[in-house]
Design a protein around this nucleic acid. Structure first.
Lengths: 178, 178
DNA sequence: GTCTATAAGTCGATAGAC
DNA sequence: GTCTATCGACTTATAGAC
C-alpha cells in the first residue's frame, strides 16, 4: 500500500480514505484491467468472419490485449493461487455485466456452428476453447521460465509475439480443419 | 513456518534449526518436487517410439505427473510472479544435474529429427514445444477459472484429464503431420 | 536436538490535527 | 481531503535453558 501511495504521490492514509481497504482497491483495479483485456474480443465472433478469420482475429486480439496489460495475468495467477473464490465472483460479474457483450459461451456457440456446418472436424468445443486460451496465455505466464531454458528467446519481444500468433493459428487451424 | 512445523509435529525453532531459513526450506522442497514432475519424462524421447507415440507419451506422462504434484505449478507461478530470478537458477541446476537425463533441449532435438525425416511438417521446434507445454500445463493452472465459467466441467476430475490428454494429442498431431 | 520466550521488523488500518 | 503518528496483528529468526 505504501508503494502504491508513493507512486500516486499521496500517502497510505489517503489511499485508505479513497478505497477503504487493500482488498477493495485490489478488486476495483482487477475488474477494470480484466475488462480491458476482454473488452473488444466480441469483434472476433462477428458473423461477418469465416472460421479461420475468427480464429486468427481471436488469437491476435487476445494476445495483443494481454501483451498490453500483462499484470492482469499476474492478478489472475495470484487469485488462483489463493483459492480462486474471489476470481470466480469477479468473472461472473464481468461476463454478466451489460457493457461487456463478449462471453466464453458465445465463443462456444460460434464453434458449435462451425462444427455443424462442417467447417471444422467434430470436436468438443469446450476442449477446443480451452486449448486456444492455453496457447494464447501461457506464453506470457511462463515468460521467465522460457528465458531460463532458452536464453536465445525473448518471449515478450514484439517479433516473437508476432511469430507466436501465427504459429498458434497454424497449429490450431491445421489441427481442426476437416 | 508455524503451520509447516505443526504439520511436521515440531515447532518453529526446530524447523529453522533444520533448514536455516524459510528461503532455504522453500528451495529444497521446490527442487525436489520439480524433479518428481520431470523425472521420468526421458522415456518419451526414447528412439524406440515413433513421432506420434513420442507425442502421446510426453503429453500423457507430463500431465499425469502434474496431476500428482499440483503444488509444483503453484510454486512456479509464485516464483514467476516475484520476478523469476530464483526459478531460473533452480531450473538450470536441475537440468544440468547428472541424475536427471531429460532436458528441453533433447526434446528440441527429437522434434528436429522428426522434421528432417518428414514425419511432421516444417515448423519451428521451439514454438512447437512451447505449444505442447502450454496445452499440458494450463488446464491445471486455470482450474478455478474454468470451473467459474463452465460449472459443468471439473478440470481436475480423472475422466476430464483423460479426455484432455486425448484432445491435446489429436489437436497437435493433426496440426503438425505433413 | 528440542523447547519457550522474545527480539526485530513488516504491513494494513485508523486516530486526530489541520 | 490530506497529512503525521501510531496501534495492533502477524511473521521470521534467534537467544538461551534443558
Amino acid at each position: 500500500m505504501e508503494e502504491i501511495a508513493r507512486h500516486a504521490g499521496i500517502n497510505k492514509a489517503l489511499l485508505h480514505y479513497y478505497f477503504r481497504s487493500k482488498e477493495k482497491l485490489y478488486q476495483v483495479i482487477f475488474q477494470r484491467e480484466f475488462k480491458r483485456v476482454i473488452g473488444d474480443l466480441s469483434a472476433s465472433i462477428s458473423p461477418d468472419l469465416n472460421t479461420p478469420q475468427f480464429l486468427q482475429s481471436f488469437i491476435s486480439t487476445y494476445m495483443e490485449r494481454i501483451r498490453q496489460n500483462p499484470h492482469v495475468i499476474q492478478f489472475m495467477l495470484w487469485e488462483i493461487r489463493s483459492g480462486g473464490e474471489n476470481v470466480k465472483k469477479i468473472l461472473q460479474e464481468v461476463f454478466s455485466s451489460a457493457e461487456i457483450n463478449f462471453t466464453p459461451h458465445r465463443v462456444i456457440e460460434r464453434l458449435k456452428q462451425a462444427i455443424k456446418k462442417g467447417e471444422i472436424r467434430r470436436t468438443d468445443p469446450h476442449q477446443l476453447l480451452l486449448s486456444i486460451i492455453s496457447l494464447c496465455i501461457y506464453t506470457f505466464v511462463a515468460g521467465p521460465i522460457i528465458q531460463a531454458i532458452f536464453p536465445e528467446i525473448d518471449p515478450l519481444d514484439g517479433s516473437f509475439i508476432r511469430k507466436r500468433k501465427s504459429e498458434i493459428f497454424q497449429l490450431v487451424w491445421h489441427g481442426i480443419k476437416p
